[in-house]
């Protein structure tokens, strides 16, 4: 089982796209370490040949007709999804320039 240390927490934070302050790392090392230590009890369970249960239902999923619908629009006819976006330009979502 993994040794939970500063480096591992930093790596997981990076993978999670989370920015941690230096002061936060120690707390997460302790709390995540404690939780995983508890979770490690699962190694005691014999699960040989047990099919994992990833979903909440066994039945096959219900599919709906694949059909294009108008996106809900506001009173002026603009798509509502854009109305509440953080930043919009020419009917698209605007983000800062991220490639040179």
């Amino acid at each position: 089982m993994a040794d939970i240390n500063d480096a591992l927490i930093r790596k997981v934070a990076e993978l999670s796209r989370l920015k941690l302050e230096d002061g936060e790392i120690g707390n997460y090392v302790i709390s995540i370490g404690e939780i995983l230590n508890h979770v490690n009890q699962l190694t005691r369970v014999n699960t040989d040949g047990v099919e994992p249960m990833f979903y909440g239902i066994d039945d096959s999923l219900r599919l709906r007709e694949d059909r294009v619908r108008e996106f809900p629009a506001d009173e002026e006819g603009n798509p509502k999804i854009l109305k509440h976006a953080p930043s919009v330009e020419d009917g698209g979502f605007k983000v800062p320039q991220i490639v040179g």
Partner: peptide, 24 residues
């Protein structure tokens, strides 16, 4: 972070898959 760890390469089998088996 816990979830990202449990799904990450090298730990997926020991954590997420194992837990899903115990769930069954």
């Amino acid at each position: 972070m816990l979830g990202t760890f449990a799904l990450s390469s090298g730990y997926f089998e020991a954590y997420y898959r194992k837990a899903a088996q115990v769930r069954r």
